[in-house]
Write a protein that binds this DNA or RNA. Structure first.
Lengths: 109, 109
DNA sequence: ATCATAGATAGATGATTATCTATATGATGT
DNA sequence: ACATCATATAGATAATCATCTATCTATGAT
């Protein structure tokens, strides 16, 4: 298994929770304090903390501490990597993995 | 919770497994028979069937039966919807969800 | 120093999921 | 009709995950 699939699947997993997906949307215009994010959800503070740890852990979100507050923002580099990867794996391309498979057999040949 | 997050989170969940992600990549140049896909993985046939059911169920992949073979291909419409959604939730936009939150309070104000 | 507040961590729990083996279904060829 | 092959389904299991309550840490205010 190519490790790039392992890596990017982690990013998609981070986006596979509706709460985290909405958090990403909320961060798309700039950084927000954890307390502001929390107000918009029906989840407890530890659950939000868990989700933010997930989003930061995979690199999608960056955390900044200011006093007793935590401010979160999107990591544009990771976001762009993900967009390019999604485009790559869904678009015909010259170095496509499918070329390796031609004439490899398969029952339907 | 806006149901669009629920819906698209299902698509991201489908891509959150490295095997399924690689399957999508394999399908990016055109349709493939299940047997050809199976050869590239160290998983059993029922496990592949489970993954294909997942990919088809969320709309990312379309199945076509021909005799005793199943051919799978990417559903470009769903793929494009997903790309546009990912762009939308990670880009500053006029109707951003974050505007609803201004002056809504939060401990850090 | 003490207290209040914001957020993180620990630990438990129920739900979901990826995988397997065994079996069923459905199509093709003899 | 029967055997074979490709795929799907059923059921079991171990792992992962979202969530909660309880508690800890760190910061700022009195």
């Amino acid at each position: 298994m190519d490790s790039k699939y392992e890596g990017y699947s982690q990013l998609f997993k981070a986006l596979s929770d509706p709460n985290r997906l909405m958090i990403v949307d909320m961060l798309s215009c700039g950084e927000l304090c954890a307390c502001v994010i929390l107000e918009r959800f029906r989840i407890t503070q530890p659950t939000l903390s868990h989700h933010m740890k997930n989003l930061c852990g995979c690199g999608l979100v960056t955390a900044r501490k200011e006093g007793k507050w935590m401010f979160y923002s999107l990591n544009e580099d990771t976001v762009n990597d993900l967009k390019m990867f999604l485009k790559a794996v869904t678009t015909m391309k010259e170095d496509c993995i499918c070329y390796d498979m031609e004439y490899k057999g398969g029952c339907c040949k």
